[in-house]
Amino acid sequence: MDEDLEIKFLHLAWHFDLRKESPNKKYLWLDIPLDNLNKIHLATVCASIFRSSQDRSPIPYGICIDGTSFSKDGNFISHEKHGGLTCATFVIQVFHSQDYPIIDFENWEYREEDRNWQIKILSILKGHIDSDYLNAQYKKCEESIFRFKPEEVAAAETLPSPPHGLKALEKPAQQILDSIIEHTEKMAINEANVAR
């Protein structure tokens, strides 16, 4: 719930494109097993991050989480040049900035398939960012950097007793992904029926 007391969701949609939007039927919701006090605190932090991103600190899109963070005043910080966040690492850093870690980085792994996704997303990013920034992202790809999939981060938020390593998240993340696919198919069928 935001400062207008409306239910909103905050997400990093793309390069310098942090959005606070109203949910609709296309989305599935997971309830985070957090007490109400911390939920309200985090919602206020999210509102603060959104304001900062609008005012002075837009958040770049980047494939490597290393060297990125949020300051307590909601400003995005990159400790290295060309740092940025994905939609998933944005969520990780929001939680971690408030000393509520959800991902156990020590127990994460690089997967060969990660690079395929990283190269694919960078090809889409091309044209939206300057060449220096893009080249820096490609260089990071060569360093076998971790990928954090959205469903893994969603599972990490949802499971009790965080932070979680990759192994603990594989099965619940797959369940979340299956639910999303099922929901998407239902939505497509509904839309097709409406169009007839």
């Binding site: 206020t44 300051s71 307590k72 005043d73």
Partner: peptide, 19 residues
């Protein structure tokens, strides 16, 4: 101060002190 609306202005002020 128990909701986002009432907390946000003070969170911004506290954050300013730190930043």
């Amino acid at each position: 101060l128990n909701d986002v609306k009432s907390l946000l202005p003070f969170y911004m002020e506290i954050n300013k002190l730190i930043s």
